[in-house]
Amino acid sequence: MKKKTSFSTKGQRADIGDLTIYRMLANRYTDAVGPFVFLDHIVPKMHPSTMNSGTGAHPHRGIATLSYIMEGEDEHFDSAGNYAKVYSGGIQWMKAGNGIIHDETLNIDSQTGSNRTHAFQFWINLPAKNKAEKPEYLAVQSNEVPQKKLPNNAGRIKVIVGNFEDLNSKIPNYSEQFLYHIQLEPGKNFTISIDQRIEVAAFLPTKDATLNDEEFQAGEFVEFDRNAGEIVFDNKLPEAADILLFGGEPYTEPIVAEGPFVMNSRVEIAEAYRDFYAGKYGNIKYEKSESNY
């Protein structure tokens, strides 16, 4: 049985510097899909050799941030001393835990010379017991992202988070969760089965696609019901299409989000701000971080 669509929507504009951004999650219909509580789509864009694309140093607590760079170069600094650059196809993952400050800058890819950028940032909510843990960080380059061909030469699937068949992402799991990048060839289709109660959404970043016989436009965020069933992706276009599919088990603890913090109560939000202003998240030492790379 095919899963039914719960809703579809397009994001709100939320530009930063030279980057054109659409905020897809949270939206007017839902605050979360499984553990995912935030999704910004940095849309494909051509840039000159210099860009103003940094978020600036800012704190997080209670979540893991995940940046998936389809095109471009992402540079990461944080107050725990972590530093790395990932390039087109790579991933930056950071568990904020009990508090960290980070700074990310998206730029053109110095390895390929391409002047296009295209990326996504997700926030993954942590279970209450993990919100108090120390921060962690992981950089995953494109060649480290598990992927495989789809049946019948339909395309490829990349496992950004979670697992699919024999593929397992390096990104830690604190609950059942998954994030797939499906690349579907022209005239091809692919079917995936979703278990009962699992929350799941699809996002079409650049091309139209047909999901369970219903046509959706590029830029649409589509959430499905929680009944067990299949999602059939059809690409009726003369060119390949990209689809992000993500979700997981429902987050059953209270969710209280404010600014860069996602906690389980208003008291914890107040504590997060108090600890930040008290300097407990540390400071980014940019020169030291670069020297350790």
Rank of each mutant, 00 (worst) to 15 (best):
K2I: 11
K4F: 09
S8E: 11
K10R: 15
G11D: 09
G11P: 08
Q12E: 14
Q12G: 12
R13A: 12
R13M: 13
D15K: 02
G17R: 03
G17E: 01
R23K: 12
R23A: 04
R28Q: 11
T30P: 14
G34V: 01
G34N: 01
G34I: 06
V37A: 06
H41L: 12
H47P: 01
S49H: 06
S49T: 06
G56I: 13
A57F: 00
I63S: 05
A64Q: 08
Y68L: 03
E71I: 02
G72H: 04
E73V: 00
F77I: 02
D78I: 10
D78W: 00
A80R: 06
A80D: 07
Y83M: 07
V86A: 03
G89L: 14
W93E: 08
W93M: 10
M94R: 09
K95D: 10
A96N: 15
N98D: 10
H102F: 05
H102M: 01
L106D: 12
N107P: 03
Q111D: 10
T112K: 08
R116M: 11
R116L: 03
H118W: 12
A119F: 00
F120C: 00
F120D: 13
N125M: 13
L126I: 11
P127K: 01
P127E: 04
A128L: 01
E133I: 00
K134T: 15
Y137D: 10
E144M: 07
V145N: 04
Q147A: 09
K149G: 13
L150F: 12
P151L: 13
N152E: 09
N152T: 02
R156I: 02
I160Q: 03
V161C: 04
D166V: 02
N168R: 12
S169K: 04
P172N: 01
N173F: 04
E176F: 11
E176G: 12
Y180R: 07
Y180V: 09
Q183V: 13
E185Y: 05
N189I: 05
T191P: 05
I192Q: 12
S193V: 15
S193K: 09
S193D: 14
I194E: 10
D195I: 13
I198H: 11
I198V: 15
E199F: 07
V200C: 14
A201W: 10
A202E: 11
A202W: 10
F203I: 04
P205N: 10
T206I: 12
T206V: 15
K207T: 08
A209P: 00
A209K: 02
T210Q: 15
L211I: 08
F216C: 02
F216W: 13
A218D: 13
N227A: 09
V232F: 05
F233G: 03
D234M: 00
E239Y: 10
I243N: 05
G248H: 07
E249I: 12
E249W: 07
P250M: 09
P254T: 09
V256Q: 09
E271A: 14
Y273C: 12
R274N: 15
Y277V: 12
N283D: 07
I284M: 07
K285A: 09
Y286V: 06
E287K: 07
E290L: 08
N292E: 14
